[in-house]
Every structure is written in C-alpha cells, then in structure tokens.
Design a protein around this nucleic acid. Structure first.
Lengths: 112, 112
DNA sequence: GGCTATATGTAGCCCAGCTACTCATCGACC
DNA sequence: GGTCGATGAGTAGCTGGGCTACATATAGCC
C-alpha cells in the first residue's frame, strides 16, 4: 500500500481504534496491525504526533500511568471525539462511494 | 469532502476517466464532476500538473488540436497506463477493505 | 555487558494537492 | 467597442501531514 494513501484518513483510524476502549500509543499501533491483518504498520513518528494533534483538538484525553516500570500514556475518546468519529465514518463512506463511482466497478467506464 | 483526502488516489481517478476514451484536460475535470455527482470539483492547478506527471511516467500520451480557435491537449491511455489503471483499481480495493476493516461497520469495535 | 522488546517522543524531509495567478480565444450582452 | 463569462492551458509557491531517522529510557534475557 502506498504510504501516502493514508493522508486524511489517519485520524479516523485512530479514533476508531480508541472507540470503546482505552489504549496507549504503542498498543494502538499493535491494534491497528492486528485489525488490518498486518497491512497497517504505522511508524511511531506517524502515530505519536497524530495523537498529540487529536488531543489538542479535544478529541482524546490522555493519562499517564506506570506499568512494569514503563511509563504509558493512555488515550481515550472524549464526547467530541465520539462525534468526530461518527463524522469521519460518514465522510469515509461518502469518499469511497464517490471514488468507487468514478473507478466504476460497474459504471459506463468499466467495459474493460 | 476534505481536499487532501484525494492524496494518492488522484492518478487512479484520472486514469479511470481516460479509460476507453480520449479527453482534454478541461473535459476531464467536467467528466469527474459529472461522474461524481458534483462531489469532485478539481481545480486546474491540480489536474494539469497531474496529467504532465502521468505523461512523464508514460501512462498517457497527449496530442494538440485546435477546436473553435481554442487549443486543446487531448490525452489518452497508453498500454502502460492501462496496466497502471488495473494496478490502481486493485490497490484501491485493498486500501478500502483495510480501512473498512478498521472503521468496522460490523467488527468488534462497532458496538455503538 | 549487550541485545531485544516495550514505550514515548522530536527534528526535519518530502511532495502532492491546493491557492492564486497569468495568458488566450470566443460569444454574448450592453 | 468594451466588458464579462465560459472555454482552455499553464506555472509559482504554499502547506501540512505522514515518513525517516534519531534520541531516550526501562525490563528481561543471554
């Protein structure tokens, strides 16, 4: 998968991953790997800054804890984050339907 | 639709629009508007450079013509472009299935 | 002591799509 | 005979988000 294909959809992935549970950054990366069958292997330099952005935007909040001597920053959705997630999901549906329509699995362009 | 959501998928749209027909730049923009129900209104500053990129990459070729006193640059797919289009379509399918899996219309995260 | 896994983070690059603009022709309207 | 909108092509420069590469620290194993 092209790396920049994620552009503009990363927030949706992170919010969806945090929907209904609290996770710390490292666990989010693992959850995305698992949930995508290994297709998504996001580098920490992508995920951590994105989480800070989401926190600045008020979509998540974080709490520090220490587990086994290691510090963890655990994130969870705010109600604004829940709303944002719903918006992202519908935006995603709209986006895919538009692109699908043009790429045309069955449109008038799909004669080949 | 967020403007940067297109990132990495524009080439697929252009190739698909040219699949089975020849169009000039302006007509491509109109065809995308039509084919997307008005959702895609790409500025010329996005489409023209992208077409030059595709031509440099050997995926399309262009010919100049003059219609009604106005110059047109008409593009059509090469066989490499056809191949690229097939690759883009399958990449798109893979991409959406991965994201769909995470956003989970029915996965274990979709309890809300 | 050194390596790997766990865990968080920053600096800076990269580049594709966007904004804003120029240039040109034609038809219509005043 | 001048202006405006539609048609048609194009470039310069900005922007920002994901990526690369690196820094830091602890636990556990050999």
């Amino acid at each position: 998968m092209k790396p920049d294909a994620l552009r503009g959809h990363l927030d949706a992935l992170l919010l969806a991953t945090l929907d209904g549970r609290e996770l710390h950054g490292y666990a989010i990366i693992e959850a995305l790997q698992l949930g995508s069958g290994g297709a998504l292997d996001l580098p920490t330099g992508t995920v951590y800054p994105a989480l800070r952005r989401l926190e600045r935007a008020g979509h998540v909040v974080s709490d520090w804890s220490t587990v086994g001597g290691r510090k963890r920053r655990t994130y969870k959705l705010t109600s604004a984050g829940q709303r944002a997630l719903r918006a992202e999901r519908s935006a995603w549906r709209e986006f895919t339907s538009v692109i699908d329509g043009v790429l045309g699995g069955d449109g008038k362009w799909a004669q080949a």
